[in-house]
Each structure stands twice: as C-alpha cells, then as structure tokens.
Simulated assay, not measured.
Amino acid sequence: MNITEVAVTVTERPVKHVFRWRAGVPGSGTTQIESRIEIRTDEGMTGVAYAARGAIIVDLFDRRLRDILIGRDPMLKEDLWERVWEIDRIEELPIYALGLADIALWDLTAKIAGLPLYQVIGGYRDRIPAYASTVTFETTEEYLECADQCLAHGFRAIKLHAWGDHRKDARLCQDLRTHVGDEIDLMYDGSAGFDYVESLYLGQALQEAGYLWYEEPMREFNIEAHRRLTERLSIPLLVAETSDGCHYNVADFIAREAAGMVRTSTHYKGGITGGLRVAHLAEAFNLRAEVHGGGLPNLHLACAIPNTTYYESLITSLPIDVEPGIGNDGAISPPHVPGIGWETVERV
C-alpha cells in the first residue's frame, strides 16, 4: 500500500458561541477557519485529520509535507513521523501542524484494522470522566453559576480559565472551592500569564484551596523557573503544554524536577505518535500525562493510556452547552467505529 494523494480543503463557518480568554490572549472571534487533511492510498483507503487553521496549512502541505508523504507506505508511521520532524528543523513548523499527517495516518491504520483508534493504540478504557473547562467569564457570579450548571449536568471536576490578574484569580479560585465544597476536583489554568512572583502567590492560594493541579502559570521556555516554583509549592505543577520539542522537551522538565504532571496531546505534541511518546515517557517516572484539549483524537488518546485522569471539555457559554456525548455521569466514550470516527460528529 502506498500514499497516492494528499488533499487539503479549507472551510469557514460562524462560531457557535463567541467567547474570550484572559487579558492579552485573543478569544474565539466570530468565524472558525478549518482545514480537512485527507491522505489517500492506492487501495482506496483514506485517513483524515482536521486543523483549526487555513492558509498556513495549505502552504505547509504544498511546499513541504505532501512531497515527503506521496509514494510512502502509510503503515510506516514512525518513519514518516521522523521525516516530518526533519522538516521541522528547517521550517520551524507551527506546533499545531507537526502531527497532522500522523493523525490522518493513524485514522487510516485503525480503519484498515477495523477498530476504533483507541483500541489500536493501547485500549486502556472505553469511557473516561470529563472535566468542565471554562472560558473566561466576566464576574465571579458567572463562574459560580457555570459551576452549578456543570455539576447539575453530572461533571465532577471543573477547571478555571480566569482573568490573568493573579490576585483576582486567587480570590476566584478560593471562592469556587467554598462554593462547590471539598468533593469536587478543581483545577486552574494560568494560560502562561504570570511571572515567577505572581505564579508563586497564586500557587499558594490554589494549594490552600486543595486544587488538583496548577497548569501553565508561566511561559514554558524557562525550565529553571518551573523547577524553582515546583520546589516551593506542594500542588502539582502541570507543564509542557505548549513548549516545542514534543517528548524531548518534556523529558527535560522531568529530569530537572520541574514537573508535578505533564501535558500531552495530539495537536501540540506531534499527533498520535508524539502524544503516546509523551504519555509513556511520563509513565516511566510514575507521572500523570494529562491530555490537553478536547476533540476526537485527544479522546482516543485519553482512552488508550493509563496515566491520564480526565478528558477536557470546553464550556463556552452560559447557559452551558455541553459537548455531545458527555452523559449525566459526566463521562464520555470514543466512537465505536473503525478509525477516529470523524463521521459521527458534526463539525461546529
């Protein structure tokens, strides 16, 4: 079997719920641009991946990626992953582009196997608890109302994306703990908005409130700053979400004792192959590799590995609009069809 064609199709549609992030980080905007990547073979099989970008994805496949895929055996995914990694040396691929071909190739592989992707890459479970991951709301009252609605739906864990003010965010986090009680897992994501002093202040408030993890308080270029922060706090620091370098970079965070948990994902860590490498690396150190972000590839990854706790499901509105598939038990299952199962969900 050989790859005969690689096609990229760009579409644009309105955003269902317009939302914002912390100060300094762009929100959703009003339209969503998306690329559909199809890798086709001489035996009539097709693997598919999606990217939340348009022209830049077309450009990268036209100039670089298509040529290293055409004529290759799609089953040799490690070889193709390394070829894309080589291109990254001169192209400095955007982190979200590094794994797109790999995701499509794994979709193709699972279709050939006649199995859901999560079973092909590990098959640890067929259902996983989800946590409600908020966008940035305007007031504390809105966050508390969002929490009430999430708990009523069945979620048993909530993660905050707040305002980017370390003192206000600290108060919000403690107010939420008081509001929901001690039995609900709470997490906080700083979206890399703070320096070391601010991160320490906020981290102390989070550990006093019994939060499960403290995610990405600082930009992740400086591992030493994360090591010093980890040394001063007892709450697990969840790191390496957006840092370049896939498992190589994650290994440095672990080796420098700068991680309480690590992030893995399909969209920021080099597809399914890169996401698995990070997860297995972390497991060798008895660390959790929490899967970052929603979507079907990440859901399959989360159900394939033993050392992740939750699936991340974004809550973008009030009243809440819960992701399809999340039941009243607060859990979700991947589609039980061959491949990733793109055809089972509406593109929104």
Rank of each mutant, 00 (worst) to 15 (best):
A258K: 05
H161G: 02
L176G: 11
E86C: 04
V58Q: 14
D102E: 06
T41I: 10
D195S: 01
M45W: 12
W85E: 13
I56P: 02
D126V: 00
H267F: 09
A52M: 13
D148K: 13
S265A: 14
V10T: 15
R83Y: 00
E183A: 14
A251N: 13
Q119R: 15
T136W: 01
D148G: 08
L299P: 07
V250Q: 09
P324H: 03
P324A: 04
D102F: 02
M75N: 11
D59G: 05
V345I: 14
Y211W: 07
E141T: 06
L172F: 07
M261K: 12
P334H: 04
T344Q: 14
I128C: 05
P129V: 04
P335S: 11
A104W: 09
T242Q: 11
M75K: 02
C150R: 04
L212R: 15
E323Y: 12
Q149V: 03
G123E: 01
L65M: 14
L287T: 08
S191L: 14
R288I: 00
E183Q: 15
R347W: 04
G54Y: 01
D175G: 00
L314M: 15
S191R: 09
F137C: 03
F155N: 04
I37M: 08
G164I: 02
W81V: 01
A49P: 07
R288F: 11
G271D: 10
R22P: 04
L212T: 15
P14L: 10
V18Q: 14
F137I: 05
Y131E: 04
Y118M: 00
A51L: 12
A49M: 08
G275N: 03
V135Q: 02
P26G: 12
T109Y: 11
I39T: 02
D79K: 11
A282M: 12
I39W: 01
E78L: 02
S191H: 14
E224H: 10
I57F: 11
V250W: 03
A240E: 06
T30F: 03
F285W: 15
D73W: 02
Y188W: 15
L65Q: 05
K159C: 05
W21G: 03
E183I: 08
D321G: 08
E142G: 01
S317P: 06
T308D: 11
S265P: 09
G270Y: 08
V337R: 04
S243E: 13
D169A: 06
G54I: 04
H247F: 08
Y211K: 10
Q32W: 12
D182Y: 02
T140E: 15
A289H: 05
R227Q: 14
S199E: 10
R228H: 15
I70G: 05
L115A: 15
R227F: 02
A113C: 10
P116I: 00
G330D: 12
G245F: 10
N298F: 03
H300Q: 07
G71Y: 08
A225V: 00
A279N: 07
T11D: 13
G295M: 10
Q207A: 02
G29Y: 06
W85Q: 11
A209F: 07
H179I: 08
A55Y: 04
Q149G: 07
F19L: 03
A130E: 06
N328Q: 08
F137P: 03
